[in-house]
Amino acid sequence: MSYHVPRAEGEIDPTFNGRAAGGYPLWEVFIRAKRGLNHVHAGSVHAPDAETAVLAARDVYTRRSEGVSIWVVPSAQIHASDPDEADAFFDSDKPYRHPTFYQIPEEVGHM
């Protein structure tokens, strides 16, 4: 969230850790559902620090009993693959990597 707030003359322009107030860093939120095994990305929140981010995530993303556990991660700490390189990264034309070509001996039965 960042929007311009007009300042009165002489008003102190507050900063937090060198950032203008109202420009809190972004956090990615991961929620584990009651019957889920893993935390799933739910969205993001703005917050000044990790503890506040957990509180904000609880209030924004678990209002309707969606989860029993919350992770927050600074968005800046997430390193992503480059969409322009998707062709090189995600060449999907290698069906032989799926195990469907193996013959399973009858003695093994269902796997």
């Binding site: 109202g22 809190y24 929140v45 703005h46 917050a47 924004v60 209002r63």
Partner: peptide, 12 residues
């Protein structure tokens, strides 16, 4: 509230 996250928090 100062941000949308706390608008939701205060509604809760």
């Amino acid at each position: 509230m100062p941000d949308v996250e706390d608008d939701v928090a205060v509604a809760n």
